[in-house]
Nucleic acid binder design. Structure first.
Lengths: 215, 215
DNA sequence: TGTACATCAGTGAACGCGCGTTCACTGATGTAC
DNA sequence: TGTACATCAGTGAACGCGCGTTCACTGATGTAC
């Protein structure tokens, strides 16, 4: 009966307030930033009294954690799409692996640039990731971190990278892309109106991979 | 007469309220985070009425920008100290350059881990760096970014690194260390109580340099 | 199929709060003569 | 050296604000019989 309920919006019960609040929160965070976000405003946007939110989330941090969690899921989805599209453009297993690695880095930075506030929610003070390691943040095989591990394995299996270079490469790769994403967000390196994000990012990803190759 | 004034604290005029407020802000940010910081609390801590702050800073953002700016200066100082100490431990110019590069990376990550909230102030929403490129944030030759450029040059002059690898290496190096610092801060990779920050960082710096060497 | 009742998911008023900022003010300082 | 006066750097009261959260409540739903 959930669907029926969500059709008539004038009903007393909302149908799926938790999801509605999460997506309202996302909208508002995009508008005012994580710091400017309030439960009251989210509730108002959904058309519900502020106190209703407390049926679904323990508190403000709970709502923000939901936003962050959803962010990890979206990021993983986008990365996965980009990777499989990239793989299709190549024949050899090695070329596919390289293309997937590049696509993943691009997807990561693009996600951050296109969703700066959600990205901040994911890694900031309230972020899902500040409570627990990233590995646990999504269902295990879907987390961005798991995707990274897999593509690094793929690079090793296809001999693009030696087992020695593969070792602990997660942290190096993640640091590089995460740093680039944050630097782009802070506008501290350059105003990315003047800059082709994809081009700069691809440059960095390739140098990263180049370093791994010869490790 | 500045010094005389700052001696008697009971005087009507404070002496150097701007500096006192900045350092109070730093203390409070370390305690409650950037988001929890308020001008009123800083003024109270200094023992001055809230409105007095407006003689010295245009608004809250102005005070936070001062904190951020001071952060860049401190970071540069600490990095410089670490680098010159590291250089002393080696004889050849090449070894000195390598040691200085490693020391710089270590200093960067250590600064972030030891001053997480100031680091956040530096690169966050209010950060000095969100208004203008990092290059302008300190006096030109003292900025952390300038130090990075110089040590990369040094690596090239001593032939540790080829001119091709030197090209645009700033962004790669900075991304890597900045990402590592942020990842450590978010606790999303690991709880750094269980981890030797210096050891992990040194591992990453070395892999970064290794990649540059063979570029 | 109809009814009683427990449970669920909302309401809306109220709480106490600290905030950023403005404003007219005043005490202290320094300078020109 | 002394005095008048402009300027500087504070005060403290007040403004209006939106916030997170609690609480007793009520309308809607679903289930047992």
């Amino acid at each position: 009966m959930r669907i029926a309920k969500s059709k008539r919006r004038t009903s007393y019960h909302h149908g799926d307030l938790a999801a509605a609040l999460t997506s309202a929160a996302l909208k508002l965070i995009a508008r005012h930033g994580v710091e400017g976000f309030s439960i009251r405003e989210a509730a108002t946007l959904v058309g519900v009294s502020p106190s209703a939110a407390y049926r679904h989330f323990a508190d403000k941090a709970g709502l923000l954690a939901a936003v962050a969690k959803q962010g990890f899921a979206r990021l993983a989805l986008e990365a996965q799409d980009a990777m499989s599209a990239a793989r299709k453009r190549h024949r050899s297993a090695a070329a596919k692996a390289v293309a997937a690695f590049e696509a993943q880095g691009l997807a990561y930075v693009n996600f951050a640039v296109n969703n700066p506030e959600q990205f901040q929610a994911m890694f900031g003070r309230y972020g899902a990731s500040s409570q627990q390691p990233v590995h646990n943040v999504c269902s295990t095989d879907q987390s961005p971190y798991e995707l990274l591990k897999r593509v690094l394995d793929e690079l090793m299996f296809t001999k693009v990278v030696t087992p020695a270079a593969r070792k602990d490469a997660e942290l190096l790769a993640w640091s590089t892309m995460h740093g680039l994403a944050n630097i782009m967000l802070s506008h501290s390196f350059m105003n990315h109106d003047n800059v082709n994000v994809d081009q700069v990012t691809l440059g960095i990803v390739r140098r990263l991979l180049h370093g791994l190759r010869l490790d």
